[in-house]
Computed example of a mutant assay.
Amino acid sequence: MAPTPTPSGPQADPPESYVGLDAGEAERRARGRGWTTVRSLPPGSVITMEYLEGRLNFEVDDGTVRRCWKG
């Protein structure tokens, strides 16, 4: 039986691993791990709901990532 494939690249990188990091460090880490677009937003920002493959969104408050999600 063939082994179960392990995802690699940005889709394997869990967004919750960025929560609590300094925003600059989080962005460098995300880009280094293959995320093509990294978006930092202040809390409560109005954004479009379109999903973009390869994009990582950070909600940044006081220079720290408070929330992170794909798309």
Rank of each mutant, 00 (worst) to 15 (best):
E59F: 00
G20S: 11
W69T: 03
G63V: 09
D22Y: 11
R67N: 09
M1H: 10
P3E: 13
E53K: 04
G20L: 08
G34I: 04
C68T: 09
P15Y: 09
D62S: 15
E25Q: 14
C68E: 07
G34F: 06
A23M: 10
W69L: 06
G34N: 07
G9C: 09
I47K: 02
C68F: 02
P5L: 10
P43D: 12
S40L: 06
P3D: 14
A30T: 12
G34S: 06
D61K: 13
G63L: 10
V60I: 02
V46M: 03
P14G: 15
M49D: 09
P43A: 14
T48Y: 01
P43N: 10
D61V: 02
R39W: 08
D61N: 10
S45E: 08
T6M: 12
D22F: 12
Q11V: 14
L41C: 07
D61E: 15
V46E: 10
G63H: 13
P5D: 14
G32M: 03
Q11A: 13
E25C: 00
N57L: 03
G24Y: 09
L21I: 02
P10Y: 15
I47M: 07
E50I: 04
S45K: 00
S40C: 11
T6Q: 13
L52C: 01
F58R: 01
G63I: 11
P5G: 07
D22M: 05
N57T: 13
R33F: 02
E25P: 00
R28G: 05
P15L: 11
L52Q: 11
T48L: 01
R67L: 10
D13V: 15
R31G: 03
A26W: 07
L56K: 01
W35P: 00
G32F: 04
R31E: 14
T4V: 15
